[in-house]
Nucleic acid binder design. Structure first.
Lengths: 254, 254
DNA sequence: TCAATCCGTATGTCCGGACAATCGAACTAC
DNA sequence: GTAGTTCGATTGTCCGGACATACGGATTGA
Protein backbone atom coordinates (compact mmCIF):
# COMPACT_ATOMS: atom_id res chain seq x y z
CA UNK A 1 0.00 0.00 0.00
CA UNK A 2 1.52 3.34 -0.98
CA UNK A 3 2.03 5.90 1.70
CA UNK A 4 -0.34 8.83 1.33
CA UNK A 5 1.16 12.18 0.42
CA UNK A 6 0.57 14.07 3.61
CA UNK A 7 2.75 16.99 2.58
CA UNK A 8 2.56 17.27 -1.16
CA UNK A 9 4.87 19.55 -3.04
CA UNK A 10 2.77 22.17 -4.73
CA UNK A 11 3.53 23.62 -8.13
CA UNK A 12 2.16 27.09 -8.54
CA UNK A 13 1.71 29.36 -11.50
CA UNK A 14 4.22 32.03 -10.58
CA UNK A 15 5.45 34.82 -12.77
CA UNK A 16 7.55 37.92 -12.35
CA UNK A 17 7.55 41.08 -14.42
CA UNK A 18 11.09 42.21 -15.06
CA UNK A 19 9.99 45.54 -16.48
CA UNK A 20 8.22 46.46 -13.28
CA UNK A 21 10.00 48.74 -10.84
CA UNK A 22 8.84 46.46 -8.03
CA UNK A 23 11.78 44.32 -6.89
CA UNK A 24 11.66 40.77 -8.15
CA UNK A 25 11.96 39.20 -4.72
CA UNK A 26 9.06 41.33 -3.57
CA UNK A 27 6.88 40.33 -6.48
CA UNK A 28 7.56 36.70 -5.69
CA UNK A 29 6.90 37.18 -1.99
CA UNK A 30 3.59 38.86 -2.72
CA UNK A 31 2.47 36.04 -4.99
CA UNK A 32 3.43 33.41 -2.47
CA UNK A 33 1.67 35.26 0.31
CA UNK A 34 -1.41 35.63 -1.84
CA UNK A 35 -1.33 31.91 -2.62
CA UNK A 36 -1.18 31.13 1.09
CA UNK A 37 -3.95 33.56 1.90
CA UNK A 38 -6.05 32.31 -0.97
CA UNK A 39 -5.57 28.67 -0.04
CA UNK A 40 -3.64 27.52 -3.08
CA UNK A 41 -0.79 26.77 -0.74
CA UNK A 42 -2.32 24.77 2.05
CA UNK A 43 -0.74 24.53 5.51
CA UNK A 44 1.94 21.89 5.65
CA UNK A 45 2.53 21.75 1.93
CA UNK A 46 6.10 21.89 0.71
CA UNK A 47 7.25 24.71 -1.48
CA UNK A 48 9.64 22.82 -3.72
CA UNK A 49 13.33 23.36 -3.50
CA UNK A 50 14.83 26.77 -4.06
CA UNK A 51 17.12 25.80 -6.90
CA UNK A 52 14.35 24.38 -9.02
CA UNK A 53 12.02 27.21 -8.13
CA UNK A 54 14.63 29.72 -9.20
CA UNK A 55 15.18 27.91 -12.48
CA UNK A 56 11.49 27.77 -13.19
CA UNK A 57 11.09 31.50 -12.66
CA UNK A 58 14.28 32.47 -14.40
CA UNK A 59 15.62 33.99 -11.21
CA UNK A 60 18.76 33.39 -9.22
CA UNK A 61 18.67 31.49 -6.00
CA UNK A 62 19.55 34.47 -3.77
CA UNK A 63 16.55 36.34 -5.13
CA UNK A 64 14.23 33.43 -4.43
CA UNK A 65 15.75 33.04 -0.99
CA UNK A 66 15.15 36.70 -0.25
CA UNK A 67 11.50 36.31 -1.11
CA UNK A 68 11.12 33.19 1.01
CA UNK A 69 13.04 34.71 3.88
CA UNK A 70 10.68 37.66 4.06
CA UNK A 71 7.76 35.28 4.47
CA UNK A 72 9.65 33.27 7.06
CA UNK A 73 10.16 36.51 8.98
CA UNK A 74 6.45 37.11 8.80
CA UNK A 75 5.84 33.66 10.26
CA UNK A 76 4.08 32.27 7.20
CA UNK A 77 6.73 29.74 6.22
CA UNK A 78 9.09 27.44 8.07
CA UNK A 79 12.36 26.23 6.62
CA UNK A 80 13.96 22.94 7.58
CA UNK A 81 17.36 21.99 6.41
CA UNK A 82 17.33 18.80 4.41
CA UNK A 83 13.54 18.82 4.30
CA UNK A 84 12.32 21.90 2.55
CA UNK A 85 10.20 24.95 3.09
CA UNK A 86 6.62 24.47 4.13
CA UNK A 87 3.62 26.58 4.93
CA UNK A 88 3.01 26.98 8.63
CA UNK A 89 0.05 25.03 9.86
CA UNK A 90 -1.35 27.47 12.30
CA UNK A 91 -3.57 30.34 11.43
CA UNK A 92 -0.99 33.05 11.58
CA UNK A 93 -2.79 36.05 10.30
CA UNK A 94 -0.58 38.96 11.07
CA UNK A 95 2.14 39.54 13.58
CA UNK A 96 1.98 42.32 16.07
CA UNK A 97 2.04 45.75 14.54
CA UNK A 98 2.20 49.14 16.02
CA UNK A 99 -1.50 49.60 15.59
CA UNK A 100 -3.70 52.53 16.24
CA UNK A 101 -7.02 52.14 17.94
CA UNK A 102 -8.70 53.96 15.08
CA UNK A 103 -7.38 51.56 12.46
CA UNK A 104 -8.21 48.59 14.65
CA UNK A 105 -11.79 49.65 15.00
CA UNK A 106 -12.15 50.58 11.36
CA UNK A 107 -10.83 47.25 10.13
CA UNK A 108 -13.12 45.49 12.59
CA UNK A 109 -16.04 47.04 10.78
CA UNK A 110 -16.95 49.36 13.61
CA UNK A 111 -17.40 52.94 12.57
CA UNK A 112 -15.24 54.78 15.07
CA UNK A 113 -16.12 58.29 16.07
CA UNK A 114 -13.96 60.75 17.95
CA UNK A 115 -14.83 63.70 20.13
CA UNK A 116 -11.90 66.01 20.65
CA UNK A 117 -12.38 67.42 24.12
CA UNK A 118 -9.07 69.18 24.58
CA UNK A 119 -6.65 70.44 21.93
CA UNK A 120 -4.26 72.94 23.39
CA UNK A 121 -0.69 73.74 24.33
CA UNK A 122 0.50 73.24 27.88
CA UNK A 123 3.81 73.22 29.75
CA UNK A 124 5.12 69.70 30.06
CA UNK A 125 4.68 67.94 33.37
CA UNK A 126 7.60 65.94 34.74
CA UNK A 127 6.16 62.69 33.46
CA UNK A 128 5.45 64.04 29.99
CA UNK A 129 8.81 65.77 29.76
CA UNK A 130 10.61 62.56 30.67
CA UNK A 131 8.66 60.53 28.14
CA UNK A 132 9.18 62.99 25.30
CA UNK A 133 12.76 63.76 26.18
CA UNK A 134 12.24 67.50 26.56
CA UNK A 135 12.85 69.86 29.44
CA UNK A 136 10.16 70.25 32.05
CA UNK A 137 7.80 73.17 31.44
CA UNK A 138 8.56 73.09 27.70
CA UNK A 139 5.43 73.78 25.72
CA UNK A 140 3.84 70.63 24.32
CA UNK A 141 0.59 69.83 22.60
CA UNK A 142 -2.05 68.13 24.67
CA UNK A 143 -5.07 66.45 23.19
CA UNK A 144 -7.81 64.53 24.92
CA UNK A 145 -10.20 62.50 22.86
CA UNK A 146 -13.19 60.32 23.60
CA UNK A 147 -13.39 57.42 21.20
CA UNK A 148 -16.81 55.93 20.51
CA UNK A 149 -17.97 52.88 18.64
CA UNK A 150 -21.62 52.47 17.76
CA UNK A 151 -22.27 55.60 19.79
CA UNK A 152 -20.93 54.04 22.99
CA UNK A 153 -17.84 55.43 24.70
CA UNK A 154 -15.01 52.98 24.37
CA UNK A 155 -11.83 54.74 25.38
CA UNK A 156 -10.49 58.01 26.67
CA UNK A 157 -7.24 59.00 25.03
CA UNK A 158 -4.84 61.59 26.41
CA UNK A 159 -1.84 62.37 24.22
CA UNK A 160 1.10 64.73 24.38
CA UNK A 161 3.25 65.68 21.39
CA UNK A 162 6.30 67.89 21.06
CA UNK A 163 5.23 71.23 19.67
CA UNK A 164 6.21 72.10 16.14
CA UNK A 165 5.98 68.54 14.96
CA UNK A 166 2.51 68.60 13.55
CA UNK A 167 -0.32 71.07 13.40
CA UNK A 168 -3.18 69.36 15.14
CA UNK A 169 -6.41 70.32 13.52
CA UNK A 170 -9.43 69.35 15.59
CA UNK A 171 -11.52 68.58 12.53
CA UNK A 172 -8.84 66.23 11.20
CA UNK A 173 -8.48 64.57 14.58
CA UNK A 174 -12.18 63.82 14.58
CA UNK A 175 -12.06 62.41 11.06
CA UNK A 176 -9.11 60.05 11.39
CA UNK A 177 -6.52 58.65 13.77
CA UNK A 178 -3.47 60.35 15.19
CA UNK A 179 -1.01 57.89 13.68
CA UNK A 180 -2.44 58.38 10.25
CA UNK A 181 -2.04 62.14 10.64
CA UNK A 182 1.58 61.70 11.67
CA UNK A 183 2.36 59.46 8.75
CA UNK A 184 0.70 61.89 6.38
CA UNK A 185 2.91 64.62 7.79
CA UNK A 186 5.95 62.62 6.71
CA UNK A 187 6.86 61.20 10.09
CA UNK A 188 8.26 57.68 9.89
CA UNK A 189 7.18 55.74 12.93
CA UNK A 190 9.86 53.35 14.05
CA UNK A 191 9.22 51.86 17.46
CA UNK A 192 7.17 52.25 20.58
CA UNK A 193 7.42 51.30 24.20
CA UNK A 194 4.19 50.47 25.86
CA UNK A 195 2.80 49.34 29.14
CA UNK A 196 -0.58 47.74 29.62
CA UNK A 197 -2.20 47.54 33.03
CA UNK A 198 -5.46 47.82 34.88
CA UNK A 199 -6.93 49.86 37.72
CA UNK A 200 -10.19 51.18 39.08
CA UNK A 201 -11.85 54.22 37.54
CA UNK A 202 -11.65 57.58 39.29
CA UNK A 203 -14.84 59.58 39.57
CA UNK A 204 -13.91 61.79 36.62
CA UNK A 205 -12.94 58.82 34.44
CA UNK A 206 -16.08 56.94 35.36
CA UNK A 207 -18.18 59.91 34.34
CA UNK A 208 -16.48 60.25 30.98
CA UNK A 209 -16.76 56.59 30.10
CA UNK A 210 -20.22 56.08 31.49
CA UNK A 211 -19.06 53.54 34.05
CA UNK A 212 -19.53 53.36 37.80
CA UNK A 213 -16.78 54.72 39.98
CA UNK A 214 -14.15 52.12 40.76
CA UNK A 215 -15.04 50.03 37.74
CA UNK A 216 -12.09 48.06 36.31
CA UNK A 217 -10.35 49.88 33.49
CA UNK A 218 -7.73 48.71 31.03
CA UNK A 219 -4.88 51.18 30.78
CA UNK A 220 -2.16 51.69 28.22
CA UNK A 221 0.74 54.08 28.18
CA UNK A 222 2.81 54.40 25.05
CA UNK A 223 5.75 56.43 23.88
CA UNK A 224 6.32 56.35 20.13
CA UNK A 225 9.62 57.10 18.40
CA UNK A 226 10.39 57.95 14.80
CA UNK A 227 13.35 56.59 12.88
CA UNK A 228 15.67 59.33 14.07
CA UNK A 229 15.00 58.33 17.65
CA UNK A 230 12.90 61.35 18.57
CA UNK A 231 9.93 60.69 20.80
CA UNK A 232 7.01 61.90 18.72
CA UNK A 233 4.10 61.03 20.96
CA UNK A 234 3.26 60.03 24.51
CA UNK A 235 -0.17 58.57 25.09
CA UNK A 236 -2.04 57.69 28.25
CA UNK A 237 -5.16 55.77 27.39
CA UNK A 238 -7.94 54.12 29.34
CA UNK A 239 -10.34 51.58 27.87
CA UNK A 240 -13.60 50.07 28.97
CA UNK A 241 -12.68 46.42 29.32
CA UNK A 242 -16.17 45.25 28.47
CA UNK A 243 -15.82 46.98 25.11
CA UNK A 244 -12.18 46.54 24.26
CA UNK A 245 -9.24 44.25 24.79
CA UNK A 246 -5.82 43.98 23.21
CA UNK A 247 -5.60 41.08 20.81
CA UNK A 248 -2.46 40.30 18.94
CA UNK A 249 -0.22 37.61 17.64
CA UNK A 250 3.41 37.14 18.56
CA UNK A 251 6.22 35.40 16.78
CA UNK A 252 9.12 33.75 18.51
CA UNK A 253 12.47 35.05 17.39
CA UNK A 254 14.92 32.19 17.37
CA UNK B 1 33.81 78.28 12.05
CA UNK B 2 33.87 74.61 11.13
CA UNK B 3 30.68 72.68 11.38
CA UNK B 4 30.74 70.23 14.28
CA UNK B 5 30.68 66.56 13.45
CA UNK B 6 27.24 65.64 14.68
CA UNK B 7 27.30 62.17 13.17
CA UNK B 8 30.86 60.96 13.13
CA UNK B 9 31.80 57.80 11.35
CA UNK B 10 33.13 55.39 13.90
CA UNK B 11 35.93 52.94 13.26
CA UNK B 12 35.74 49.93 15.49
CA UNK B 13 38.08 47.11 16.26
CA UNK B 14 36.20 44.28 14.64
CA UNK B 15 37.44 40.80 14.02
CA UNK B 16 36.00 37.52 12.89
CA UNK B 17 37.22 34.02 13.53
CA UNK B 18 37.00 31.95 10.40
CA UNK B 19 37.76 28.73 12.22
CA UNK B 20 34.74 29.14 14.45
CA UNK B 21 31.59 27.26 13.57
CA UNK B 22 29.62 30.42 14.32
CA UNK B 23 28.58 32.03 11.03
CA UNK B 24 30.66 35.03 10.07
CA UNK B 25 27.69 37.33 9.67
CA UNK B 26 26.53 36.34 13.12
CA UNK B 27 29.89 37.02 14.68
CA UNK B 28 29.90 40.45 13.12
CA UNK B 29 26.33 41.16 14.20
CA UNK B 30 27.14 40.17 17.76
CA UNK B 31 30.15 42.45 17.88
CA UNK B 32 28.20 45.36 16.47
CA UNK B 33 25.38 44.78 18.92
CA UNK B 34 27.85 44.59 21.77
CA UNK B 35 29.44 47.84 20.61
CA UNK B 36 26.04 49.52 20.59
CA UNK B 37 25.13 48.11 23.97
CA UNK B 38 28.50 49.02 25.39
CA UNK B 39 28.39 52.54 24.06
CA UNK B 40 31.28 52.36 21.60
CA UNK B 41 28.77 53.00 18.87
CA UNK B 42 26.79 55.98 20.04
CA UNK B 43 23.29 56.74 18.78
CA UNK B 44 23.35 58.61 15.51
CA UNK B 45 26.87 57.62 14.59
CA UNK B 46 27.46 56.31 11.10
CA UNK B 47 28.72 52.83 10.57
CA UNK B 48 30.97 53.45 7.57
CA UNK B 49 30.07 52.12 4.19
CA UNK B 50 29.56 48.45 3.61
CA UNK B 51 32.18 48.05 0.92
CA UNK B 52 34.98 49.45 2.99
CA UNK B 53 33.80 47.59 6.08
CA UNK B 54 33.84 44.34 4.14
CA UNK B 55 37.32 45.02 2.87
CA UNK B 56 38.60 45.83 6.33
CA UNK B 57 37.27 42.58 7.73
CA UNK B 58 38.23 40.46 4.77
CA UNK B 59 34.59 39.58 4.18
CA UNK B 60 32.35 39.92 1.20
CA UNK B 61 29.73 42.59 1.03
CA UNK B 62 26.75 40.20 1.19
CA UNK B 63 28.07 38.81 4.45
CA UNK B 64 28.44 42.25 5.94
CA UNK B 65 25.01 43.19 4.67
CA UNK B 66 23.51 40.12 6.29
CA UNK B 67 25.00 41.11 9.63
CA UNK B 68 23.76 44.68 9.32
CA UNK B 69 20.36 43.56 8.14
CA UNK B 70 19.85 41.40 11.21
CA UNK B 71 20.45 44.42 13.41
CA UNK B 72 18.15 46.55 11.28
CA UNK B 73 15.47 43.91 11.81
CA UNK B 74 16.07 44.16 15.53
CA UNK B 75 15.56 47.91 15.32
CA UNK B 76 19.10 48.81 16.37
CA UNK B 77 20.24 50.30 13.07
CA UNK B 78 18.65 52.38 10.35
CA UNK B 79 19.84 52.38 6.76
CA UNK B 80 19.44 55.30 4.40
CA UNK B 81 20.31 55.06 0.78
CA UNK B 82 22.95 57.55 -0.20
CA UNK B 83 23.63 58.37 3.44
CA UNK B 84 24.77 55.32 5.28
CA UNK B 85 23.83 53.13 8.19
CA UNK B 86 23.49 54.69 11.59
CA UNK B 87 22.68 53.64 15.10
CA UNK B 88 19.13 54.38 16.11
CA UNK B 89 18.88 57.23 18.55
CA UNK B 90 16.23 55.88 20.80
CA UNK B 91 16.76 53.46 23.59
CA UNK B 92 15.54 50.37 21.81
CA UNK B 93 16.41 47.61 24.17
CA UNK B 94 14.69 44.56 22.86
CA UNK B 95 11.64 44.02 20.73
CA UNK B 96 8.66 42.07 21.88
CA UNK B 97 9.30 38.45 22.58
CA UNK B 98 7.05 35.63 23.50
CA UNK B 99 7.99 35.92 27.11
CA UNK B 100 7.06 33.86 30.04
CA UNK B 101 6.12 35.41 33.32
CA UNK B 102 8.71 33.32 35.08
CA UNK B 103 11.55 34.57 32.90
CA UNK B 104 10.29 38.12 33.16
CA UNK B 105 10.34 38.02 36.92
CA UNK B 106 13.66 36.27 37.10
CA UNK B 107 15.39 38.75 34.82
CA UNK B 108 13.84 41.58 36.82
CA UNK B 109 15.72 40.29 39.82
CA UNK B 110 12.65 39.09 41.64
CA UNK B 111 12.89 35.58 42.88
CA UNK B 112 9.68 34.04 41.59
CA UNK B 113 8.04 31.21 43.45
CA UNK B 114 5.31 28.93 42.26
CA UNK B 115 2.68 26.94 44.11
CA UNK B 116 1.14 24.26 41.98
CA UNK B 117 -2.43 23.97 43.21
CA UNK B 118 -3.84 21.70 40.54
CA UNK B 119 -2.02 19.25 38.27
CA UNK B 120 -4.40 16.75 36.81
CA UNK B 121 -6.09 15.43 33.70
CA UNK B 122 -9.59 16.58 32.84
CA UNK B 123 -11.95 16.34 29.87
CA UNK B 124 -11.66 19.43 27.69
CA UNK B 125 -14.34 22.05 28.01
CA UNK B 126 -15.71 23.61 24.86
CA UNK B 127 -13.47 26.65 25.21
CA UNK B 128 -10.32 24.63 25.88
CA UNK B 129 -11.10 22.19 23.10
CA UNK B 130 -11.55 25.02 20.60
CA UNK B 131 -8.32 26.67 21.65
CA UNK B 132 -6.26 23.50 21.51
CA UNK B 133 -7.91 22.19 18.37
CA UNK B 134 -9.04 18.91 19.92
CA UNK B 135 -12.45 17.34 20.29
CA UNK B 136 -14.57 18.28 23.27
CA UNK B 137 -14.24 15.93 26.22
CA UNK B 138 -10.78 14.85 25.06
CA UNK B 139 -8.49 14.37 28.00
CA UNK B 140 -6.15 17.31 28.54
CA UNK B 141 -3.76 18.35 31.25
CA UNK B 142 -4.90 21.10 33.53
CA UNK B 143 -2.57 22.97 35.83
CA UNK B 144 -3.30 25.84 38.12
CA UNK B 145 -0.45 27.75 39.65
CA UNK B 146 -0.13 30.65 42.01
CA UNK B 147 2.88 32.77 41.19
CA UNK B 148 4.48 34.76 43.97
CA UNK B 149 7.18 37.37 44.05
CA UNK B 150 8.74 38.34 47.37
CA UNK B 151 6.20 36.12 49.03
CA UNK B 152 3.27 38.14 47.69
CA UNK B 153 0.77 36.59 45.29
CA UNK B 154 1.16 38.15 41.89
CA UNK B 155 -0.76 36.05 39.41
CA UNK B 156 -2.98 33.03 39.16
CA UNK B 157 -2.22 30.93 36.13
CA UNK B 158 -4.55 28.32 34.67
CA UNK B 159 -3.17 26.32 31.77
CA UNK B 160 -4.37 23.47 29.60
CA UNK B 161 -2.11 21.29 27.47
CA UNK B 162 -2.83 18.44 25.09
CA UNK B 163 -2.08 15.19 26.84
CA UNK B 164 0.94 13.21 25.76
CA UNK B 165 2.94 16.28 24.91
CA UNK B 166 4.86 16.63 28.08
CA UNK B 167 4.90 14.92 31.44
CA UNK B 168 4.14 17.63 33.90
CA UNK B 169 6.01 17.06 37.07
CA UNK B 170 4.79 19.21 39.94
CA UNK B 171 8.26 19.60 41.38
CA UNK B 172 9.61 20.81 38.07
CA UNK B 173 6.69 23.20 37.65
CA UNK B 174 7.51 24.74 40.99
CA UNK B 175 11.18 25.10 40.11
CA UNK B 176 10.90 26.73 36.71
CA UNK B 177 8.49 28.10 34.12
CA UNK B 178 6.22 26.18 31.80
CA UNK B 179 7.83 27.52 28.64
CA UNK B 180 11.24 26.45 29.76
CA UNK B 181 9.92 22.96 30.41
CA UNK B 182 8.41 22.82 26.95
CA UNK B 183 11.60 23.96 25.29
CA UNK B 184 13.58 21.43 27.26
CA UNK B 185 11.22 18.76 26.00
CA UNK B 186 12.18 19.65 22.45
CA UNK B 187 9.13 21.68 21.57
CA UNK B 188 9.90 24.60 19.28
CA UNK B 189 7.62 27.47 20.13
CA UNK B 190 6.64 29.40 17.06
CA UNK B 191 3.81 31.84 17.63
CA UNK B 192 1.08 32.77 20.04
CA UNK B 193 -2.22 34.53 19.94
CA UNK B 194 -3.05 36.50 23.00
CA UNK B 195 -5.68 38.75 24.39
CA UNK B 196 -5.19 41.17 27.25
CA UNK B 197 -8.12 42.63 29.11
CA UNK B 198 -9.39 43.61 32.54
CA UNK B 199 -12.31 42.80 34.80
CA UNK B 200 -13.33 42.67 38.42
CA UNK B 201 -12.26 39.79 40.65
CA UNK B 202 -14.74 37.08 41.56
CA UNK B 203 -14.92 36.01 45.18
CA UNK B 204 -12.77 32.96 44.55
CA UNK B 205 -10.18 34.91 42.59
CA UNK B 206 -10.07 37.64 45.20
CA UNK B 207 -9.40 35.05 47.89
CA UNK B 208 -6.57 33.45 45.94
CA UNK B 209 -4.84 36.71 45.14
CA UNK B 210 -5.44 38.34 48.50
CA UNK B 211 -7.48 41.16 46.97
CA UNK B 212 -10.97 42.43 47.83
CA UNK B 213 -13.85 41.11 45.79
CA UNK B 214 -14.48 43.15 42.67
CA UNK B 215 -10.93 44.52 42.62
CA UNK B 216 -9.65 45.29 39.11
CA UNK B 217 -7.65 42.43 37.60
CA UNK B 218 -5.50 42.27 34.53
CA UNK B 219 -6.33 39.23 32.42
CA UNK B 220 -4.47 37.45 29.67
CA UNK B 221 -5.49 34.54 27.52
CA UNK B 222 -2.93 32.93 25.29
CA UNK B 223 -2.78 30.05 22.87
CA UNK B 224 0.72 29.00 21.90
CA UNK B 225 1.63 27.08 18.75
CA UNK B 226 4.74 25.15 17.84
CA UNK B 227 6.38 25.26 14.45
CA UNK B 228 4.23 22.48 13.07
CA UNK B 229 1.15 24.50 13.82
CA UNK B 230 -0.07 22.42 16.73
CA UNK B 231 -1.53 24.29 19.66
CA UNK B 232 0.68 23.28 22.55
CA UNK B 233 -0.76 25.34 25.36
CA UNK B 234 -3.78 27.41 26.30
CA UNK B 235 -3.41 29.72 29.24
CA UNK B 236 -5.91 31.82 31.16
CA UNK B 237 -4.10 34.10 33.54
CA UNK B 238 -5.09 36.80 35.98
CA UNK B 239 -2.68 39.33 37.43
CA UNK B 240 -2.81 41.79 40.27
CA UNK B 241 -2.46 45.08 38.44
CA UNK B 242 -0.76 46.76 41.37
CA UNK B 243 2.00 44.16 41.12
CA UNK B 244 2.28 43.51 37.43
CA UNK B 245 1.76 45.12 34.05
CA UNK B 246 2.75 44.17 30.54
CA UNK B 247 5.67 46.19 29.26
CA UNK B 248 7.09 45.71 25.84
CA UNK B 249 8.56 47.36 22.84
CA UNK B 250 7.18 47.23 19.34
CA UNK B 251 8.82 47.76 16.00
CA UNK B 252 7.04 49.09 12.97
CA UNK B 253 7.31 46.83 9.98
CA UNK B 254 7.51 48.94 6.86
C1' DT C 1 13.99 -7.64 14.71
C1' DC C 2 16.40 -3.73 15.78
C1' DA C 3 20.18 -0.52 15.71
C1' DA C 4 23.99 1.83 13.39
C1' DT C 5 25.60 3.70 9.06
C1' DC C 6 25.40 5.71 4.53
C1' DC C 7 23.68 8.87 1.25
C1' DG C 8 20.63 11.89 -1.36
C1' DT C 9 18.44 16.25 -0.79
C1' DA C 10 17.53 20.66 0.66
C1' DT C 11 18.71 24.62 3.10
C1' DG C 12 22.74 27.49 5.30
C1' DT C 13 26.71 30.18 4.47
C1' DC C 14 29.84 32.74 1.67
C1' DC C 15 32.05 34.80 -2.34
C1' DG C 16 32.88 38.55 -6.04
C1' DG C 17 30.87 41.25 -9.14
C1' DA C 18 27.50 44.41 -11.66
C1' DC C 19 24.18 48.01 -12.24
C1' DA C 20 20.25 50.92 -10.40
C1' DA C 21 18.12 54.18 -7.22
C1' DT C 22 18.43 57.65 -3.99
C1' DC C 23 20.29 61.15 -0.88
C1' DG C 24 23.00 65.20 0.12
C1' DA C 25 26.14 68.55 -0.95
C1' DA C 26 28.66 71.21 -4.09
C1' DC C 27 28.22 73.75 -8.05
C1' DT C 28 26.12 76.69 -11.53
C1' DA C 29 23.02 79.89 -13.54
C1' DC C 30 19.74 83.44 -13.09
C1' DG D 1 21.02 85.40 -2.96
C1' DT D 2 18.24 81.78 -4.58
C1' DA D 3 16.78 78.07 -7.26
C1' DG D 4 17.90 74.42 -10.20
C1' DT D 5 21.46 70.99 -11.72
C1' DT D 6 25.14 67.98 -11.48
C1' DC D 7 27.80 64.59 -9.21
C1' DG D 8 29.87 61.68 -5.72
C1' DA D 9 28.70 58.51 -2.15
C1' DT D 10 26.05 54.79 -0.36
C1' DT D 11 22.67 51.45 -0.09
C1' DG D 12 19.28 48.40 -2.95
C1' DT D 13 18.80 44.73 -6.11
C1' DC D 14 20.36 40.85 -8.69
C1' DC D 15 23.38 37.37 -10.61
C1' DG D 16 25.95 32.64 -10.74
C1' DG D 17 28.56 29.79 -8.36
C1' DA D 18 30.81 27.01 -4.46
C1' DC D 19 31.03 24.33 -0.39
C1' DA D 20 29.14 23.16 4.37
C1' DT D 21 25.60 21.18 7.20
C1' DA D 22 21.71 18.83 8.75
C1' DC D 23 17.64 16.00 8.12
C1' DG D 24 15.31 11.62 6.73
C1' DG D 25 14.96 7.52 4.60
C1' DA D 26 17.29 3.44 2.76
C1' DT D 27 20.71 0.25 3.41
C1' DT D 28 23.48 -2.61 6.05
C1' DG D 29 24.95 -5.07 9.98
C1' DA D 30 24.45 -7.45 14.50
Amino acid sequence: MPKPDVDPTVTLDLRVDRSSPVPLYFQLAQQLEAAIEHGSLTPGSLLGNEIELAARLGLSRPTVRQAIQSLVDKGLLVRRRGVGTQVVHSQVKRPLELSSLYDDLESAGQRPATNVLVNTVVPASAEVAAALGVAEETEVHRIERLRLAHGEPMAYLTNHLPSGLLDLDTAQLEATGLYRLMRTAGITLHSARQSIGARGATAAEAERLDEPEGAPLLTMQRTTYDDTGRAVEFGDHIYRPTRYSFEFQLLVRP
